[in-house]
Design a protein around this nucleic acid. Structure first.
Lengths: 202, 202
DNA sequence: ACCTGAACACCGTTCAAGT
DNA sequence: ACCTGAACACCGTTCAAGT
């Protein structure tokens, strides 16, 4: 069994996890992933050299955080799709869950999509991003089978959806979609416009 | 008249501009805006303290770079719209020019949209971003007057277009829209889907 | 008015040495 | 096996002092 994360004990039960948790907390607190590794160590109650027993360098820790971020996002999306609504409603709900995830975790979301950070395990990250894309793809395929969405190469439709949602997420995170600039409910109307492009006429 | 940027002369004619140029070159070279101010000074041939005569801190220089970036993007968009094509073709062409700008200047584009960097002059930046949005808005309004685009609040349509294009730009910059992952011509098909959502039936 | 050099308080990373 | 302390080569920023 694992103890809870305590401050400054003996040998420190699970330093690796404690470092990740401390870093996640700092990313949330500072709204930036430009924390210092030394402060992560400080918060975990160890010397500044200790993290190097668990991560080869700072980039590796950032990479791990991004991985955790994709897992969190994946959980949110699955939760949003766990219902009996129509495919178009599910698409809207999933999109809103995605956008909300970004707005709740802006710095983490930035980290997940910034090549600067974890250049080392970039391949790994792309796989995680693709998992997100696959959720979208299977939803779109379901809609196509039901005759709701247009019968086009599904990968193209998925790229359109993902790009729009990613764009809405980033712009709203940066405060560039405020009502006074862009009208009321910009996210709803953007998603509506997308749906109208995706759906067949009835 | 202004001399060209030379290396290590007298008092240095126009250090401010030389610093900006050096920084822009480094952003392009490293594909990252995580350069050091000391190296910018080095490349401009001055001491590491000299930049502080022209910028209060590093963030101010980053802010200036972002401003230059928005100006460059604005030039590209204006060039793309300087023709006699139909509004829907102009929208496609402008979108492609926008996406290409990001892919040619990925680190600069990242910088332009990252809150981390120039927290000081954030307001200034938002204005620049809004200028970009306004180009889109007036194009959409023109299309509405011609009865090509749907008669909806134009700000919502503009938010949809900008978000999609921003998303396509970032994802393609990060190499997440490669054909093997997302099918051929993901950008074209995404833009097509958008247009179909925007346009009235004929 | 503009720039330099030394100085301060930090980093990331390494490595001998400790438990 | 895991962690510490000192050390190295850097940063960003400040400030007296130079031209």
């Amino acid at each position: 069994m694992e103890d809870q994360v305590v401050e400054q004990p003996y040998h420190h039960g699970d330093l690796r996890r404690a470092l990740i948790d401390a870093a996640l907390a700092m990313v949330k607190e500072f709204k930036s992933w430009h924390f210092t590794l030394r402060e992560v160590a400080r918060r975990a109650g160890v010397s500044h050299a200790a993290p190097y027993r668990h991560f080869p360098d700072k980039a590796a820790l950032l990479s791990e955080l991004a991985k955790v971020g994709f897992e969190m996002l994946s959980v949110e999306l699955s939760a949003a799709l766990n219902n009996n609504l129509s495919v178009e409603e599910q698409l809207t709900i999933a999109a809103k869950a995605y956008i909300q995830f970004g707005n709740v975790n802006p710095a983490l979301y930035h980290l997940m999509f910034s090549r600067d950070a974890g250049a080392s395990e970039e391949v790994h990250l792309n796989e995680r991003a693709m998992a997100t894309l696959n959720v979208l793809t299977s939803l779109l395929e379901r809609g196509q089978r039901q005759g709701v969405f247009k019968d086009r190469p599904v990968k193209g439709l998925a790229a359109a959806c993902w790009s729009l949602v990613h764009g809405l997420t980033m712009l709203s995170m940066e405060g560039l979609l405020l009502p006074e600039k862009v009208g009321d409910q910009p996210i709803d109307s953007a998603l509506n416009t997308l749906l109208e492009g995706l759906m067949l006429e009835r």
